[in-house]
Nucleic acid binder design. Structure first.
Lengths: 360, 360
DNA sequence: ATGAAAGCGCTAACAC
DNA sequence: GTGTTAGCGCTTTCAT
């Protein structure tokens, strides 16, 4: 048997990772068995207070930190709660903060898996599954149920945002249809009739909102105008050009706040004033929407409550072994700020100029 | 020996985690040994093409996913690159996105550890260390070198932002002093003399900027005015009130963009116009600063280059075993937008009114 | 080229 | 109470 005080002569494939203290080291130093040390360090009852004190002191003094990888493997529990989110999205940021604080002291650690252009959602979920998270929370997943189910590989999950119909997946969401209807009617009341929608792309959640928009428009005997957009500012900006160049809409319902902000930015860059020339609405009520310089009329989805509920759902699944599906729908709130107003009788010179600039 | 096709009758402490396929299962199904399967699935040379094909096919068909925990334990490598970041901070979001795309296909997986009010930085680092990341990237760490060194527990790291003097810690940063000096001189050129600074709190990085501000002011024979702020909007908003109530500054240099945005928001809420009544500058050039409704004059720290460089540094440490410290300093760029302008000869009625409102 | 066997550091059952 | 033992699922020798 090799001397345990030395770095392993062999076995370690390389020495990039320096040897760390093990349970055995602490056991040796305290003159007890590894098993005992394990129990004590995890605060299990059984060991006497005297040995517990000694072992704790030794571990502390030597600066021992348990190898989580090993303990996960042995206990077949990771106590990990996976979360997928998009780092740049302030709405996700707020949700993540609340998820963290809600998870605090519940015995779970949160593992964040980023979703970006270069690191797509299936991969992000894969990482969480491979890391053996016990349950996963998905923020605004863009996956179809089929692909989602495959990616989850049987793990229970809770989806915040879209309504996914899978037995192992709980849903925490806003009533999107009601929300979009509120938006349409808010604009209608202001006097708008030419209301366009910049959607979030051909994905699950965006589809719900788009359909709600179309239904609401038709219900009011108006013709819907859908322009394809996306979830980010840049996609919104592109869509803004398209609307300006091809329609005479006086109001735009954007898929979400980020998209709306991109639209506003692009429009303002072209000299169009908001809301004097064109009204804009968002969805999410993120921290940017609340700024005075932006003051976006939007939908507040009670995100803090949603985050908390998502954590509760997730933990119920693992701790109480709930297997039945739960759906939690929150009522949307319309927040009217400064980006919506009555339309002008006819398009302003500014808008005409902006249109002309695009056509060329 | 228990039937391997059944969930383990005992041994599993509970059945919250359902049994997943193991290497052994694949080996059995393919009629080879687990060792072989391992080699094949990791693409090692050695096994014959024929068996490789067969094993791959079986693994694929059965939907096998290796248990990363186990492989980490056995190989003593995690191939994990840890990153601490604050989810709500858009500047961090941009850095993280770039870090991810730069890490792509370099054989490392990124583990994100969130830092928030309820989940502080030492804990976030701890999590990364316990998860046995091989190297860590810290975004704008607020820790003193002493505490940082202890938290890292010997792991190599690279800090983006502050200048930390530790042999195992590389530094990627902007020249903060030069940047702040540019800001002061920009305002000076516009004609401001009563320039206040809202700092980022009593932390490492904020200190650098505050000292640079003070030095620049003194150099120009002006008296500095420092108001304590923080890294977030709310702290900026509080500081704005203090400045408005106790000074007659015509310009404010905020610790960073987020803080500046909080200041702007609070000021505008009180009827103060920017930049007509008061000029504001930020630091970071985050995506919000770029919006037309905000148009914040700020410092661009070349964040994409910084992110890329940080990843390179980190990977050099582990892959090439570099142990010598590297410091990379990027030149700051002043971005003049719409929040800075010439000061008025005397305070406007709006400012007076706002002041009076605060005093009461 | 393949199989057998010995761990990685820990946990959990079981003796004592 | 405490120590011993047998794995967890994988990687990596070392035989064959």
């Amino acid at each position: 048997m090799p001397d345990r005080n030395l770095p392993p002569a062999m076995g370690a494939p390389d020495d990039r990772v320096r040897r760390r203290l093990t349970l055995q080291d602490i056991a040796d130093a305290a003159g007890v068995s590894p098993g005992l040390v394990s129990m004590i360090l995890r605060g299990q009852s059984g060991p006497s207070a005297a040995t517990a004190a000694k072992v704790t002191e030794v571990a502390e003094r030597l600066g021992y930190r348990p190898n989580r990888t090993a303990s996960q493997l042995a206990s077949r529990r990771t106590q990990l709660l996976g979360v997928t989110s998009t780092p740049g999205n302030p709405y996700h940021g707020e949700l993540v903060e609340e998820i963290l604080s809600r998870t605090n002291d519940r015995g779970y650690e949160v593992l964040l898996s980023p979703v970006t252009r270069t690191h797509e959602e299936v991969g992000a979920i894969q990482t969480l599954v491979d890391s053996r998270c016990e349950v996963i929370i998905l923020l605004n997943t863009t996956l179809e149920p089929g692909r989602l189910e495959k990616a989850l590989d049987g793990l229970p999950a809770v989806v915040v945002g879209p309504s996914v119909d899978l037995p192992t997946v709980d849903v925490v969401r806003t009533d999107d249809s009601a929300a979009v209807t509120m938006l349409v009617e808010h604009l209608l009341e202001l006097g708008h009739t030419r209301i366009a929608h910049v959607d979030g792309g051909d994905l699950y959640l965006p589809r719900t909102r788009r359909e709600a928009y179309e239904a609401a428009m038709v219900r009011h005997r108006l013709s819907p105008l859908v322009v394809s957009g996306g979830e980010t500012e840049d996609r919104g900006a592109e869509a803004a050009d398209e609307i300006l160049g091809t329609s005479d809409s006086t109001a735009i319902i954007a898929y979400n706040d980020l998209c709306a902000i991109g639209i506003m930015d692009s429009l303002q860059k072209r000299g169009v004033r908001i809301p004097e020339d064109i009204s804009i609405t968002g969805f999410d009520n993120n921290r940017i929407a609340r700024l005075h310089g932006i003051a976006l009329t939007t939908i507040d989805p009670l995100k803090l409550e949603q985050a908390r509920r998502a954590v509760d759902c997730a933990i119920e699944r693992v701790d109480q072994g709930r297997t039945q599906r739960v759906i939690h729908e929150f009522p949307p709130h319309l927040i009217v700020r400064a980006t919506t107003a009555q339309p002008k009788a006819r398009a302003s010179r500014r808008v005409m100029a902006a249109r002309r600039a695009i056509d060329t």
